[in-house]
């Protein structure tokens, strides 16, 4: 029984890992690549680590595997956020099919702060605070 669960988890993990690699290679711009890599790799390595926990079935191994999964779940989004921010400052191009980019021009390139509305040159949308 545990062998079947282990095998299933390993196959799922390997599948999503290959999807992550394929996505990183095929996607046309930085943000799409991050989109493909960050989640598929989290799910893939999470499934593989769970397979280890099920296979060995002892407390020590399970706590270590679960700790690693939690750590990955916490850190992957942060790494993606920081890389996306850095990419935006470097001026990475978005792919031509992008529908809309509402972040364009919102970063203050000198102070590295992020505004919530267009600066004063654009017509103000409304005076009411956005809820």
């Amino acid at each position: 029984m545990t062998d079947v669960i282990t095998a299933a988890l390993m196959i799922v993990g390997a599948f999503f890992m290959v999807m992550a690699g394929l996505g990183v290679l095929r996607m046309p711009d930085l943000f799409l690549r991050m989109s493909a890599s960050s989640k598929a790799s989290t799910l893939g390595s999470g499934a593989l680590l769970l397979a280890v926990a099920v296979h060995f079935g002892s407390v020590g191994v399970t706590t270590r595997a679960v700790a690693t999964i939690v750590f990955l779940l916490l850190t992957t989004p942060i790494a993606a956020h920081m890389l996306g921010r850095a990419g935006y400052f470097v001026g990475v191009k978005l792919v031509e099919t992008t529908v809309i980019d509402e972040l364009a021009g919102q970063y203050d390139l000198r102070s590295h702060r992020l505004r919530s509305k267009q600066p004063a040159t654009a017509p103000p949308e409304s005076d009411q605070p956005q809820v």
Partner: peptide
């Protein structure tokens, strides 16, 4: 948002009004 596929969180504005 980042962990659900298809969406990627980029940043939150300084005044916490808007998330990109």
């Amino acid at each position: 948002i980042t962990l659900t596929p298809g969406t990627l969180y980029l940043d939150v504005s300084e005044d916490r009004q808007v998330m990109y």
